[in-house]
Design a protein around this nucleic acid. Structure first.
Length: 300
DNA sequence: ATCCAGGAACTGT
DNA sequence: ACAGTTCATGGA
């Protein structure tokens, strides 16, 4: 992590292939998004560090992030944690040069990497958030998925007001672990999604699944196994979490409908590719399947 | 109305 | 292992 602590604010120095505006465009894809707010070329995000709610105002000037704190003055330790979170949020540990080299040899990706050069996978560093969000979004359209998330966060998350507007924190696994299925049914979760998410919250709150331990595992298939052994987490959700939370560039949600639609568009097909056809295309993206998928999503 | 959406578990073979 | 079925609801 490349950053500097300027006490009242912090700076982060991104790696070479990086485009802040393009990342913000992705963050701004749904008007129902509630976990951050994009205003022009700035994004506001609420974080919890050292048990304190801390609003961050993130801008980009002269090739570096400038992170200010419009509300509470942060402690020294907190500032470092904020830097860590943002570094991870924008997936800045990746060196994309190899991906771009590979993409220029690929008929599907060539245009996309040119168009979106510097776009990073926008990550979801919290394991409970990424998994429960993926479960919420299973088999429903994105708009409704965001609606469910909004209700969920507004019901069970904490918030902080700044200039008349609320900034929300995703609910903790500990909070959700205490709920009953009926609680989530009132938000129009299905019985199954409600049960999966509460069960998952209990698992995470009791240390039955730990991000740091998953990060230690080298073999992708072993990570998949650890994740899919939990109810509600199938292959799609496992690969989604590996890509958005565990920073595995090899993760590849081959059954994803959005991915299929993007491929259909890019190739001008009259139907969506099958899972087998999608796998075959992925053969050209070895090592960077997650980035290929994310760039394709971004094209939608 | 009708189709299907950023799937997964369960059932039967 | 593999295919078919069920879940449940809103968007387009």
């Amino acid at each position: 992590m490349n950053w500097s602590d300027c006490e009242t604010y912090i700076e982060l120095f991104p790696p070479k292939e990086f485009n802040f505006s393009e990342c913000l465009q992705f963050l701004n894809r749904s008007p129902l998004e509630i976990l951050h707010r994009v205003k022009g070329e700035t994004v506001y995000k609420l974080l919890q560090v050292q048990d304190v709610l801390l609003l961050c105002k993130i801008s980009f000037l002269d090739g570096r992030f400038v992170v200010e704190f419009p509300t509470a003055p942060p402690y020294t330790v907190a500032r470092k944690q904020v830097a860590k979170y943002i570094w991870e949020w924008f997936d800045m540990d990746q060196d994309l040069e190899e991906f771009y080299q590979l993409a220029t040899q690929d008929d599907i990706l060539r245009d996309l990497v040119q168009k979106y050069a510097g776009l990073r996978i926008m990550c979801i560093p919290d394991l409970f958030e990424v998994l429960s969000w993926a479960i919420m979004g299973q088999q429903i359209n994105l708009t409704f998925a965001y609606t469910l998330k909004k209700r969920f966060v507004e019901q069970y998350g904490e918030y902080l007001s700044f200039e008349e507007e609320p900034y929300w924190l995703y609910p903790s696994a500990e909070t959700i672990a205490e709920l009953s299925v009926e609680d989530l049914r009132t938000l129009q979760f299905t019985n199954r999604k409600a049960a999966y998410i509460i069960e998952l919250a209990k698992t995470l709150a009791s240390g039955g699944l730990v991000k740091e331990e998953l990060l230690e595992i080298q073999d992708d298939d072993l990570i998949r196994k650890a994740l899919t052994s939990k109810r509600g987490i199938g292959p799609w959700t496992a690969d989604y979490a590996m890509m958005k939370c565990l920073h595995r560039t090899t993760a590849f949600p081959v059954a994803d409908v959005g991915l299929h639609n993007a491929l259909k568009n890019q190739l001008g097909l009259d139907r969506k590719p099958t899972i087998e056809e999608t796998k075959a295309m992925g053969e050209n993206w070895k090592g960077w399947e997650a980035y290929a998928t994310f760039y394709l999503w971004h094209s939608l």
